[in-house]
Design a protein around this nucleic acid. Structure first.
Lengths: 239, 239
DNA sequence: CGTTTGATTGACACGAGTCAACACCAGTGG
DNA sequence: CCACTGGTGTTGACTCGTGTCAATCAAACG
């Protein structure tokens, strides 16, 4: 099954008809290379993007070039459910590694939403979870130490990947370079490197060949003071 | 006019009928004292809150008690347009100083939205602006220095207050204590104090008796690297 | 092969946190 | 009227987490 459907099913129960309609809407796909901008700040996007494989990110930059990644999209996530309301976009969206992207034209979204209320509700749920995640990241950034932030991110990604069936054995693809990881966490890349080594040294994780393995999820969650409530999973797919 | 109507008008043009419907929906008011929790993490709120006067905040806390304020609501802002989709709430909402709060029962929201599409669109616009603001705060937290963060916050509040007509002469109510300000910015209260004094020393602002005056908005914006694009104001009410 | 990109390490600097003391109120109650 | 209080703001001294700069190393790649 498409991860997009899997993800939406977490937000609302879907009928076979709903699922079929989603499948039709996301039939148009394209491959995107690594580090490719999908949407640039100021654009007026005409289609919605959904991530089928790989990881994409939202980011904002400052005049001097400092970059902050303000969101990660894993398979199953939509990038821009609602941009047409705001006219222009206030941030950019780019792939991290290579990605497969579903393109949903505006009229297809509109039809999907108006004809399938459950799907509309599920997409609404997903965007509220995104917003809650943003708040949790802000909490992290403001109050957690570097190592806690990093641990917290890994805990979050573990659950999000698990949700779409991509985290067997607490191991999943993690295509971010350390520089990108530091842009997510608001650290310098040097410090990100040292923090990563601390986590490795404590035998909590292994990161090799763009695969991240979490050895002891419970210990990592305790270190991070991770509480999954903000993901609103309701135990539908946890473990 | 109610600040709630003023704010919504920025998101979509409203007819007299729309305005009257909003006015009816927000007719039920209550006074809230300072530092009063309106919604607690885990609650299932049954009514929507709108701020009529004063300032309220969203916040999250860590087990050890560290608090991060993840949003400020000024007059005209709704606190929880959409909570019913998610069941429980993942953060708390509290007043800062004394506030006047409009309470809108669930059924009134539903009716407002279904019978007045322009209002629905405006509320949607408002919640997308909230989300964009969250992203900007995350950028601030990750990449801007303490003094830039503080300057940026003041620039943002100036525009948001102006939007609802509450920032004559670039001066507006600012009821936050320094401790609360530090919870917004992710600083210690000592450092917040010193940063504030730096801004005062540079003759950029005056903060006295819970009133904030911005002497030189342009200079403050330059210091903060403030770009108002994320507020999506479209020059409807700027100056 | 050289070239490039990403990871790693060390030395050092600096922004921000911590702790503790003190000042300045606005209430409050004796 | 005046001590006493508790909350808030202010200051200094010191610590420590993170950033910066620069060199080196490893792996990928044309």
């Amino acid at each position: 099954v498409s991860p997009l459907i899997r993800k939406l099913e977490c937000g609302a129960p879907l009928s076979d008809l709903d699922r079929a309609a989603i499948a039709r809407a996301v039939a148009d796909r394209r491959q995107a290379g690594p580090r490719e901008d999908l949407i640039r700040q100021g654009d007026r996007p005409h289609a919605m993007h959904g991530v089928l494989s790989g990881i994409a990110c939202r980011y904002k930059t400052l005049p001097e070039g400092e970059r902050q990644i303000v969101g990660l999209m894993v398979p199953g996530d939509f990038c821009d459910v609602h941009f047409h309301i705001l006219g222009t976009v206030d941030h950019s969206i780019a792939t991290i590694g290579a990605c497969e992207i579903a393109l949903v034209p505006r009229h297809a979204i509109d039809r999907l939403i108006s004809e399938h209320p459950s799907v509309a509700r599920a997409m609404w749920w997903a965007s509220l979870v995104d917003e809650a995640t943003l708040r949790e990241w802000l909490l992290s950034m403001g109050q957690r130490s570097a190592i806690q932030r990093m641990a917290h991110l890994f805990c979050e990604l573990r659950l999000r990947m698990k949700l779409v069936g991509l985290a067997e054995d607490d191991t999943f693809d993690f295509p971010l370079t350390q520089a990108e990881l530091s842009d997510v966490l608001g650290l310098s890349s040097v410090h990100a490197n040292r923090t990563l080594q601390e986590l490795r040294g404590a035998d909590l994780i292994t990161l090799r060949n763009n695969r991240l393995q979490i050895h002891d999820p419970a210990a990592l969650q305790e270190l991070a003071e991770f509480d999954p409530a903000y993901l609103h999973l309701e135990s539908r797919q946890l473990a």
